Amino acid sequence: MRVVLRLLSPLLGLLVAAVGVLTALEVIVAWVAPSSSPLVVPWPTWQAALAGLTWSSAAVRGVAIGVGVVGLLVLLVGLVARRHDVTLTEPVPEVTVTTSPRSLARAVGHEVRSHSDVVSASVVASPKKVVVRAGTLDTPEEVRTAVRERVDEALGRLPLARRPRVSVTVAATKGVK
């Protein structure tokens, strides 16, 4: 979702800048030569069409509803795209300490991969959950217990304000030991 915001923000900024430049040019042309035709935008035609509208007109209400819906969608995209940091315990009340989910996954992944029976591992972390998928050449159930203990130890060493749920999946991989 953050990618959408990173694309949407410059596009909206360019659109607002273009409208501003176009408005400035139209105003300058209207001041310099009031009797000439508009530069790009047909303002006199629009003014005549809008003169008959009131605040209670269906078109005005429809545009207002449309603008409101688009505004709510942009607000929702912004709220969903916020960064979901993992909160750590505060060393002092005035200091807030956070880390990224990627760093938490990297720390847990390093611990999982250091186990001698694990041949491959992937870790995905969020503030609420850590998901570990590991591959082994041995019996998956035995390795799963050992990996789960290592993940619990790694999370225990970290100063996490809230301990995430842990999900460990170990599958047998093909290969020669």
Rank of each mutant, 00 (worst) to 15 (best):
R2M: 10
V4Y: 10
V4A: 15
V4D: 14
L5I: 12
R6D: 14
R6N: 14
R6M: 10
L7I: 07
G13I: 09
G13V: 08
L14H: 07
A17Y: 11
A17S: 08
A18T: 15
V19N: 01
V21K: 01
L25H: 00
I28V: 09
A33P: 01
P34G: 06
S35N: 03
S37N: 08
V41Q: 02
P42F: 12
P44R: 10
T45H: 09
T45I: 04
W46E: 05
W46V: 07
A49W: 08
G52S: 11
G52K: 09
L53K: 00
T54G: 15
W55H: 05
A58G: 02
R61L: 15
R61T: 14
R61M: 13
G62L: 07
A64G: 03
V67R: 00
V67H: 05
V70F: 10
V74F: 09
L75F: 10
G78V: 13
D85L: 13
V92R: 09
E94L: 04
T98C: 08
P101E: 14
P101A: 08
R102S: 14
S103N: 15
L104D: 12
L104T: 00
A105S: 03
R106C: 04
A107R: 10
V108S: 02
G109N: 13
R113H: 04
S114A: 12
V119L: 09
V119P: 01
A121G: 02
S122Q: 13
V123Q: 01
V123Y: 11
V123P: 02
V124R: 15
V124G: 05
A125S: 04
S126W: 15
S126Y: 13
K128F: 11
V130P: 00
V130A: 02
V131H: 07
V132E: 04
R133M: 04
A134K: 09
T136L: 06
L137R: 15
D138H: 11
T139V: 09
P140A: 07
E142S: 06
E142L: 11
V147Y: 07
V147L: 02
R148C: 05
E149D: 13
R150L: 03
V151N: 07
V151W: 14
A154S: 07
A154F: 05
L155Y: 04
R157M: 10
L158E: 02
P159I: 06
P159L: 05
L160Y: 06
A161Q: 14
R165Y: 13
S167Y: 15
S167A: 09
V168A: 06
T169G: 04
T169H: 09
A171D: 07
K174T: 08
G175R: 02
G175Q: 10
